[in-house]
């Protein structure tokens, strides 16, 4: 049972009519304190002044920061409590989902239109899950891996529903604690005909850490084949290909990922660097141009992409000038 009356909520929504409807839904659930803002910038300010328990943010917030960038900034600058439940409101769930890097996932997604019953059901589940898993997360934040693993077993025993999440967290702890043999054993237990994406991902990482690079590549290839929208798989694959001195393959891999989601700046910068190494100046320019474009409202922007973009445009111009001179000479 969740006591909503004690919770503070923030609604981030640029469509005021809709915000009013959501606010009424929250009030009907018993939440007495609800603030509404219409932009991510205002939301960041509100989070500096108040500590919210629930944040409901629309993904599309007009020309400035979007909901995902808001969440990234709130986490990066420690503006929300680890206990805060963040729900992303979207028109199309898939589109928003692939934009999120794995360390910045919201606690739940809810697709418009929705009614109070659906919102309550989503919040009930997200808050209950967060509360139940909280002790494990605290131990993990303190790097107390053995204690966290023990807690995973306890929580899973008492809540069969969270068994998979607990397995996932236990795997994270084993890898973080460099217990690679145990992690490998655990993977074997979890393997099924259809592995969950996180199982394939963990297996790939374990193999990578054990220096079994060919097997690791095979594993990440399977991951992106079975789950083409799980973009972290492409990042790992490109990283290994790059290490094996196959920069052209690595570039192709990352190009597949940015085709599905162009918004992650880190990925665009990696791609730009690879293209530079491969002397593919057009791709280099494109990647840094995207990094600049999507970085405009992001906390992860840096001078680097501007410098590199200028450099690549310079190279393009030089290339054109070179060709021009050749033509002239022939003429």
């Amino acid at each position: 049972m969740i006591h909503y009356s004690k919770l503070k909520a923030l609604i981030v929504e640029d469509f005021t009519e809709f915000a009013r409807a959501v606010s009424t839904m929250l009030r009907d659930m018993g939440i007495s304190h609800t603030d509404t803002v219409t932009s991510a910038e205002a939301a960041i300010q509100a989070c500096r002044e108040h500590k919210y328990d629930i944040i409901l943010s629309d993904y599309n917030l007009g020309p400035q920061k979007d909901g995902q960038q808001l969440l990234e900034e709130l986490i990066e600058f420690n503006l929300i409590k680890p206990k805060t439940t963040f729900v992303m409101v979207t028109a199309e769930k898939n589109a928003a989902m692939v934009m999120a890097a794995i360390e910045f996932l919201p606690d739940a997604y809810v697709t418009k239109p929705f009614n109070r019953h659906l919102l309550k059901s989503k919040l009930d589940k997200a808050i209950a899950k967060k509360q139940t898993l909280e002790p494990i997360k605290i131990a993990m934040r303190k790097c107390q891996w053995m204690k966290a693993i023990e807690l995973c077993a306890n929580v899973a025993n008492q809540n069969p529903k969270y068994k998979n999440t607990c397995n996932q967290l236990k795997m994270k702890c084993l890898i973080a604690n460099e217990q690679l043999d145990e992690a490998g054993q655990f993977i074997k237990q979890l393997q099924k005909k259809r592995c969950a994406p996180w199982v394939l991902r963990s297996q790939g990482i374990i193999l990578y850490k054990q220096q079994e690079l060919d097997q690791s590549i095979e594993c990440f290839n399977r991951l992106i084949h079975d789950y083409p929208m799980y973009l972290e798989g492409y990042d790992w694959l490109a990283k290994i290909q790059h290490q094996l001195n196959r920069p052209i393959e690595a570039q192709k891999t990352l190009q597949k990922a940015v085709l599905r989601s162009p918004k992650l700046i880190k990925r665009q910068k990696l791609l730009g660097g690879l293209a530079e190494q491969n002397n593919d100046i057009n791709s280099m320019t494109e990647a840094y141009r995207q990094a600049v474009k999507y970085g405009e409202h992001s906390v992860f922007r840096s001078a680097e992409e501007y410098v590199k973009l200028t450099k690549s445009i310079g190279l393009q111009l030089k290339g054109d000038a070179g060709r021009q001179r050749k033509t002239n000479r022939r003429g």
Partner: peptide, 23 residues
């Protein structure tokens, strides 16, 4: 059409689908 399969809990998923029709 983006095809984005993932693992989901069926109980939660089906409850959400019926929530839309409660009223």
């Amino acid at each position: 059409l983006p095809f984005n399969p993932n693992y989901y809990n069926l109980g939660d998923f089906l409850e959400e689908q019926s929530c839309k029709f409660i009223p």
